[in-house]
Write a protein that binds this DNA or RNA. Structure first.
Length: 799
DNA sequence: GTTCTAGAAC
DNA sequence: GTTCTAGAAC
């Protein structure tokens, strides 16, 4: 094997002992796109290695040419038998590609993953530039391949069978990993676990941890040396087999598998139920995995991660995942994963039974139960939603109406359960939290069409929001208890130290909430100041709302992290008497530079030089810094009407007028240049005051389009199509805005073919030549173009 | 929103 | 050395 030219082996060093067969074998599976530096990593380790390594490279294993996966497996097995450690140098980008190599652990070898998760633009730029690549992937073709590959990237997890995973997100991480592996002596081993996994919003997380007055245990000490994970603190450590009687799977199952009664709990299980000794307990069903058909494997990961993060922050609470049958796959998956993650089983466990009869039939006291609600927050529909509304009686329906009319996916709303509700009287449930998760069922509204990137984000949002609301309920309870009891409760009893949102625990009392931002939070959201219907509303003291919606920002949730923002930054939508949102809450303040449109709209006669059209409702003008060949603004003249969050049902006719005016101007431009295609829409969070509709040609051919923010503000969901806005107002009376600031810093992708590009100049050079049509989702009435222009494949809808 | 500029990336 | 980004200032 040593003579095999396809196997790249580091030379044995003087005095180096050869390992016994299979005794200390180590397989390191590299994971990364072309250009991520896998081969360089292997070579760098092997040059300085203190143990014999073999690099198995699929690009060259077939007599110097590309070979097969099987050849790689066979070579790796042979090398291990020969006492060598092995690098599997291929992309291994998803679980399916890795599974056969993970099986090498059957030889007795330890299997590690080293993930070179470097920025897409870096991989692309390296791949495009390189020459003499073993796999012949270089030049223009490389960008396409890297793009395609990154779209199916699936990061490795311990549960795949790895004993150690090292994530490298920048060059410095890679250097550290090279150092770690090259320093490995013949009989050395590395600690098991996950290392270097940083949330993409590490800056945010830092702020969060500070905000919560907790310090996250770092992966490395000051010297940069790996710290061996402490199983009681670190969560991503190698799973141990759960020992009998010491497992977090304390499920209260029935002996009869299909019987949902809960009277037959074994004595060993019983200690976890009964009186909750005042420990706030939330029972919740699995969100979206039933009728909404969300993949249970992914859902179970999200549940376990969300729970784990929540329990890291709060001690004196219990969370219980409930399902009807002992055969429930989601329960068994969650049990298995929470055991692997060593989640404290007294704080989180699964429970088989009816969520509406947890105490009377299961002796499990839960103060709060979550409902997998529908967006209308109405009874019916079967499943948990129907059961909870039925069990709670009309009072839950009425209480819900008092609090909220609709719910958007990824959000939750707390409804205090009136004391006359049977669910309150019989089961001791004081609050129901309605949660709406993502829908993957094409038969149901808002189906995500198998988009699990978005789906996972929304499901994370849903759980984070749920747990945040649960936390908020009990923070206030403690505060109120302290007030009532003159002896007081010491601060150390306050579960929610560091969080800011507060609730009344009195279920018949209207919810009150107040929030405070520390300076760091204000700084973080500096770029996204919101008016009353937006996320910053928590900073506004409220005295008389009807309900609280809590939402975790997706930037945090993208990494399955529960957000402390969601603990403190509850969204407050107001409903006062006449069902209208309150406009009394403090409005966003605008900088001097943001007033230009406002001044023009209110005094158009003073700006005749720039105003192209004027009516009582709006003015039309060229964007001063057009981001395309044609880019105009239709600006509302209604005073105090600054952004989409201000929009209510009564503004529908105004927005229709603005749309018609914009479409008319687009048609006028098309008569001058029939090659143009226009899109009409609003920025979710505008920079300029006074609501304005952008009418922009899709060439984006402008010197004023200079940075990522410019591009992404027109080419991500930050841009809300006017037709969608009108439809939402008609249906719901309000407009949802995607105000996730991450949208504006996303990687640069062509709006037609979706390819990624490393910087603005490269993107602009690409889009001038890209011949792909605009994506099909825009063809649903969102584009305006000349009938003669077949480029978009449909006809104009607005002429 | 833009401009300016330090410093990172190339 | 030049190009490009991102944050501060306005």
């Amino acid at each position: 094997m040593d003579c095999d030219p396809n196997i790249h082996q580091s030379p044995p060093r003087q005095g180096e002992e050869v390992l016994d067969q299979g005794k200390m074998g180590l397989v390191v599976i590299l994971v990364g796109a072309p250009g991520s530096g896998k081969s360089t990593f292997c070579n760098d380790v092997m040059v300085a290695a203190r143990r014999p390594w073999v690099r198995v490279c699929q690009d060259t294993i077939g007599n110097g040419k590309q070979g097969t996966k099987l050849q790689c497996q066979m070579s790796a097995t042979a090398a291990l038998k020969d006492g060598k450690s092995v690098f599997i140098d291929r992309c291994n980008i998803d679980q399916e590609q890795r599974v056969d190599f993970v099986k090498l652990s059957e030889t007795g070898a330890d299997v590690h993953a080293v993930v070179l998760d470097l920025p897409a633009k870096l991989c692309i730029s390296r791949s495009v530039k390189r020459s003499g690549h073993e796999g012949k992937l270089q030049g223009g073709r490389a960008a396409v391949v890297v793009n395609r590959m990154l779209q199916k990237k699936e990061l490795p997890k311990l549960c795949e069978g790895f004993s150690r995973i090292t994530f490298c997100q920048n060059e410095s991480d890679v250097k550290d990993a090279v150092k770690t592996y090259s320093a490995l002596g013949p009989s050395d081993t590395l600690p098991a676990g996950v290392f270097g996994e940083k949330s993409k919003e590490s800056k945010v997380q830092l702020g969060i941890m500070k905000f919560l007055k907790k310090v996250e245990k770092p992966d490395k000490d000051d010297s940069g040396k790996d710290i061996i994970p402490d199983e009681h603190v670190t969560h991503d450590i190698i799973p141990r087999p759960a020992s009998v009687g010491n497992t977090c799977t304390m499920e209260l199952e029935n002996k009869n598998e299909d019987d949902v009664s809960m009277n037959d709990n074994s004595s060993s299980q019983r200690s976890f139920i009964g009186d909750n000794h005042g420990v706030p307990t939330l029972a919740f069903p699995s969100i979206s995995t039933a009728d909404f058909q969300f993949d249970i494997e992914k859902a179970s990961d999200i549940i376990v991660d969300s729970v784990s993060d929540f329990l890291k922050r709060f001690n004196n609470v219990r969370l219980v995942l409930v399902d009807l049958s002992v055969k429930s796959k989601i329960l068994s998956l969650v049990r298995e994963k929470s055991t692997k993650k060593h989640i404290d089983s007294s704080k989180f466990f699964t429970f088989v039974g009816d969520i509406t009869q947890l105490y009377t039939r299961g002796k499990l006291k839960c103060n709060v139960i979550a409902n997998a609600a529908n967006w209308r927050l109405r009874p019916g529909g079967g499943g948990v939603n129907a059961a909870i509304f039925k069990a709670a009686g009309k009072s839950l329906e009425n209480a819900t109406k008092e609090c909220a009319e609709t719910l958007s996916p990824g959000n939750s709303v707390v409804v205090p359960l009136p004391s006359n509700s049977p669910l309150h009287l019989r089961e001791g449930v004081t609050h129901v939290i309605h949660v709406l998760g993502p829908n993957m069922n094409p038969q149901r509204p808002n189906c995500l069409n198998n988009d699990y990137i978005e789906g996972c984000k929304v499901l994370c949002n849903a759980y984070s929001s749920l747990f945040a609301n649960f936390a908020s309920i009990f923070k206030d309870q403690i505060r109120n208890e302290s007030k009532r009891n003159s002896s007081g409760i010491s601060d150390s009893h306050n579960l929610f130290e560091g969080t800011t949102s507060t609730y009344s625990h009195d279920s018949d009392q209207k919810i009150k909430q107040e929030g405070h931002y520390n300076s760091e939070k204000n700084k973080k959201y500096k770029g996204f100041p919101y008016s009353h219907a937006s996320k910053d509303k928590v900073s506004i003291p409220h005295e008389d709302h009807g309900y609280v919606q809590s939402e975790a920002p997706s930037d945090v949730l993208a990494s399955n992290k529960i957000s402390s923002n969601s603990m403190s930054r509850a969204i407050v939508d107001c409903k006062i008497g006449n069902n209208k949102r309150s406009a009394e809450v403090r409005k966003r303040t605008w900088g001097a530079w943001a007033q230009a449109l406002h001044d023009i709209a209110l005094n158009p006669e003073k700006h005749k030089d720039v105003v192209m059209e004027m009516s009582d409702a709006f003015v039309v003008l060229n964007d001063m810094y057009p981001k395309a060949k044609k880019h105009i603004l239709v600006v509302s003249r209604l005073q105090g009407f600054d952004c989409l969050a201000d929009v209510q049902q009564e503004h529908l006719s105004l927005l229709k007028k603005m749309h018609s005016a914009g479409a008319k101007w687009a048609d006028r431009f098309l008569r001058e240049d029939s090659s143009l295609i226009f899109r009409l829409g609003y920025h979710s969070v505008p920079s300029m005051r006074q609501l304005h509709l952008h009418v922009i040609s899709q060439d984006f051919d402008s010197t004023h389009l200079k940075n990522k923010k410019h591009w992404n503000s027109f080419n991500t969901s930050f841009f809300r199509d006017s037709t969608d806005v009108l439809e939402e107002i008609e249906k719901h009376g309000v407009v949802t805005v995607n105000d996730d600031e991450k949208l504006l810093t996303k990687e640069l992708r062509c709006h037609k073919c979706c390819s990624a590009h490393p910087n603005i100049p490269r993107l602009k050079s690409h889009i001038t030549n890209c011949k792909a049509p605009l994506p099909t989702h825009l063809h649903d009435g969102k584009l305006v173009y000349a009938p003669s222009n077949c480029a978009s494949g449909t006809s104009s809808n607005l002429s």
